[in-house]
Design a protein around this nucleic acid. Structure first.
Lengths: 165, 165
DNA sequence: TCCTTAATATTGCATACTGCAAGAGTTAGC
DNA sequence: GCTAACTCTTGCAGTATGCAATATTAAGGA
């Protein structure tokens, strides 16, 4: 499959070039994300930030919902909530619906962290986009969409938080 | 390009669209990488795989060089090498150059892991690229290069291993 | 209604990753 | 030769992670 010049086929150069280009772009995004997270005073670890972002999109949630969203074991989410609650970034209350559920919610300080990191990332990405020739921006969006559609990845609902690093 | 009154200026739509498109593409890459790593029998953790990839590009290396490459503390690299050596994936010998240095090297089993994961990732990415219209592939590469050049990120030297997840 | 089953949170146990600090051995430079 | 820097190593602490077991609570069926 690697090298057949049939219509619809592809040669190795295509794969290598696309892979390298995507890899480099991803690294740039990751670097921006890491920098913006490290810039926050109250040291929040990447997994903790992911949890905060999850809460900000999910709203008040029970523990298993949060664990499912993050793709971790409930016990892991449990301890992370422990630490974040101790730090005052989230609150944990008994759910009014069911007495076996817990209602985890973003505290004001937690929301502030998400907002601050998000704003910084947005500004950093905007700075890069601003350095791109304006005429190339649409081409980039279109090309990326073609790629992700080919991969069957659902479009990113997340607008800005980039809560994956 | 669509609506850009000021040369070099940009509006919020540009940033949001480019960000969302890149984010989705990155997630696809990350998903492919995670899948290919999880498919390996001998469970290797993502950081361990990064170390193996680092060794495969660096060749035999001393500990601090490895730690620098991975961006971790030497003590972290130390323990990771401990575990990988115990698992037979790397070897650790006294350096012939200097008696204070240690020579860490990929063992055959370690190289096999890198090769296997790499091959799987390459095949998965190739499958996605194959589903893209052939005419759009160059546009994707060009657009991504424009973006990364604007971000000042050096091009990815790594061809395939994707040792970042 | 009562009983069984499922859901939910929680804790115990084990492992991995991470950094900081200190120490011991080794090399380099002066 | 002495001092400084380099290198590896270990101790300590905190975080992340999963599996297994347990207690409590809700749901559903006989």
């Amino acid at each position: 499959m690697t090298d057949d010049p049939v219509p619809g086929g592809l040669d190795a150069t295509d794969v290598d070039e696309v892979t390298a280009a995507l890899l480099t772009a991803s690294r740039l995004l990751v670097a921006i994300s890491a920098r913006s997270l490290a810039a926050v005073d109250d040291a929040v670890t990447p997994p903790q930030f992911r949890l905060l972002v999850g809460l900000s999109t999910l709203g008040p949630a029970k523990l298993v919902a949060l664990a499912d969203l993050l793709g971790v074991n409930p016990s892991t989410a449990m301890r992370m909530v422990d630490r974040l609650a101790a730090a005052g970034l989230v609150t944990r209350r008994a759910s009014p619906q069911s007495r076996r559920e817990v209602r985890v919610e973003l505290a004001a300080a937690g929301r502030a962290v998400v907002d601050e990191v998000t704003a910084r990332r947005r500004a950093d990405i905007a700075a890069v986009v601003a350095r791109m020739p304006a005429g190339r921006r649409r081409a980039l969006v279109d090309a990326l969409r073609t790629f992700t559609e080919a991969g069957g990845e659902p479009p990113a609902a997340a607008v800005l938080p980039l809560g994956w690093t």
